[in-house]
Simulated scan of single mutants.
Amino acid sequence: MGTEDGERVGLRERKKQETRIALSWAAIRLAVERGLENVRVEDIAAEVGVSPRTFNNYFSSKGEAIAARHLDRARWIAAELRAQPASKPLWEAITDAALARFALGQEGDGKHTPDQQWVAGLRLMLAEPALQGEFFKAGAIAEAELAAAVAERTGTDVTHDLYPRLVAGAVGAAIAVVMEQWMRADPPVPIMALLSDALRQLAAGLPVP
């Protein structure tokens, strides 16, 4: 493939990713504004200026579209872990990967989407029974990807060894606890501080306080 063809493919993939992100944010925004039951796939598609058929090319339901932002954040941590130097100790690499992705998320989706939209979507997923299944399904997919990254880094087998899946499950649980505490904190607490503390405690083996 020539350089020009590669650029065209790269541009096409970037446009697809932008459309996917836009549909997910639209689903969150409309569900928060109107209530989940009052939002149709047609409404989400119209908000982004695409057809319902295009929506269905990306997501099988409005719940999946809402959960996509959570899934993408979690997947990015696995990708970031793979990018960490091989010489860096595992838990240091995991912590740096998680903090890097959450720090990026503070600026929204790259188009200045305020993080409050993600917070609102997260509240919606945790409170709405119809969305909780999508939230947990997204978490399971993300944990599997993180486990694969941990296995690569530690020379373990994701199918036969407990270790990579235990690590991924612990990290997923830590992130979930941090997000719930962050949303309920009064006065507000910086999410980066909570996440750093949670992963530090995991790395230390969760010693009794």
Rank of each mutant, 00 (worst) to 15 (best):
E134L: 12
A147W: 10
R123S: 08
D197L: 11
E37P: 10
A193C: 08
Q116F: 04
A100I: 05
W91L: 09
E18G: 08
L166Q: 05
V119G: 03
S60T: 03
A185F: 03
R153G: 08
D161I: 08
V119K: 03
Q132R: 13
A204Q: 15
A173S: 15
S24P: 12
K15P: 00
A31S: 15
F59A: 06
T154Q: 08
L195K: 03
A120W: 08
V208I: 01
G49P: 03
P164R: 05
V189P: 09
A130L: 04
H112R: 09
Q116M: 10
L11D: 11
N57A: 15
H160K: 02
G169Q: 04
L206G: 06
W76C: 11
A142K: 02
A65C: 00
G110T: 06
E152F: 14
A149Q: 03
A26D: 07
A31P: 15
A22G: 01
R8S: 07
V167F: 03
A83K: 14
A127R: 15
V50L: 02
K88E: 11
A127N: 04
V32G: 05
L122T: 06
R8I: 10
V167L: 04
Q106V: 04
S87M: 09
A46I: 12
G35T: 03
T3V: 14
L202V: 10
E128P: 08
R20A: 11
P89V: 10
G63M: 12
G63P: 09
L81T: 05
V32D: 02
G205C: 09
R34H: 06
Q116C: 05
S51M: 03
S51C: 06
L23V: 01
D109N: 10
D161L: 11
L131Q: 06
L166P: 00
L104V: 07
E107G: 12
V50R: 01
L71A: 08
E33Q: 14
I44K: 05
M183Y: 14
A83I: 02
V39C: 05
V119L: 01
R75F: 15
V150H: 07
M192V: 08
A138N: 01
R200M: 10
G110L: 04
Q84N: 06
K16R: 06
N56K: 02
G35I: 10
I191H: 09
R153W: 14
V178Y: 00
H112P: 00
P129S: 10
V178T: 14
L124H: 05
E134Y: 15
T154R: 07
R12Y: 12
K88D: 13
V41I: 12
A149K: 02
P52I: 14
A27K: 02
G172R: 10
I141K: 03
N38I: 14
A198V: 11
L199E: 14
G139T: 12
R29F: 11
A78I: 03
P89E: 07
L195F: 07
A31V: 01
T54R: 12
L195T: 08
R12D: 11
G108H: 05
R184K: 13
A147L: 15
E42R: 09
V177I: 09
A93I: 13
A203V: 03
E13R: 14
P188H: 07
P52T: 12
R153F: 12
T156Q: 14
A86V: 02
I175P: 04
F55W: 01
S60I: 00
G133C: 04
Q84M: 14
R200H: 07
I175E: 04
S87L: 12
A97C: 00
T159R: 09
F55R: 00
P164F: 05
